[in-house]
Amino acid sequence: MADSAAEARVDRALVTRVLLDDDRRAFEQLVRRHQGMVRAQLRRLLRGDETAADDIAQEVFLLAWRKLDQFRGEASFRTWLYRIAWTCFLQAQRRNPAPADDADEVEPPTAPAQPVDLQLDFELALRRLSDGEQAVLLHCVQLGLSHEEAAFVLAMPLGTVKTHATRGKAKLKSWLSAWRAGAAQEDPA
């Protein structure tokens, strides 16, 4: 908690330097501090497409540079960047819609008849969740945001974020139970 408060203070100081002194080096510091996680967020959203993720990430930081005076400090700087990244991701999706998965998104994930690799199968199970559930689990569990922060980033009501988190985890838990049962049958020893 103390670490994140200190991080937030550093970010605010750097933002102030950019706005007051037009300090490009201060903005470079902000980019260095946050590029790793923003790019990681976009790579997850774009399912590993590193080139597309980095293109969007560049746009995110250019937008942040142009709109830095709109950063009001209600959320942390990183959360603000995540929000810009999410918006840019949605715009990119509208311009180039991703091909639909073969499986119906609404259909709950089912364990494979022959469990091969837990992590691999888990990735497939995750992709069977709804877009909202995937987005919430990415931001809340993998990026470490609170529900309130995720609601800000995803521009969703807080209740919706909590519902997606609960439902997504419930589906994955039942998938995991089925997977373990399948693995136990496959290898009773």
């Binding site: 260095r32 590029q35 790793g36 990681a40 790579r43 997850r44 995750l126 569990v141 993998q142 995991l176």
Partner: peptide, 12 residues
């Protein structure tokens, strides 16, 4: 499982 799947911050 979700954490393990996440590769973390990307190198510059």
């Amino acid at each position: 499982l979700l954490q393990r799947q996440f590769e973390g911050a990307v190198a510059d």
